[in-house]
Amino acid sequence: MEGQLEYLFAGFAVFWAGLLVYLVWLQARLRALQAEVRRLEERLAEEVPVAEATAATRSASAARVAPEGGA
């Protein structure tokens, strides 16, 4: 009966440790993705003048990209 507390502790530990690891992993992924979205959006904003210049001379495919800007 004495050893039972250890198993109780282990059972709870599996749950809480697993949850903690999952949350830390999810948080890290969320942060990385947010950072990447910000970086990509900045780069897109920088590229716009160049793209606009080429779009004028190029086919409709480049022009079709432009209205998506707000998404």
Binding site: L40, E47, A62, V65
Partner: peptide, 11 residues
């Protein structure tokens, strides 16, 4: 992110 990356590539 994937969509943005694709757009950047096209640009």
């Amino acid at each position: 992110t994937q969509a943005l990356r694709a757009r950047l590539d096209r640009r």
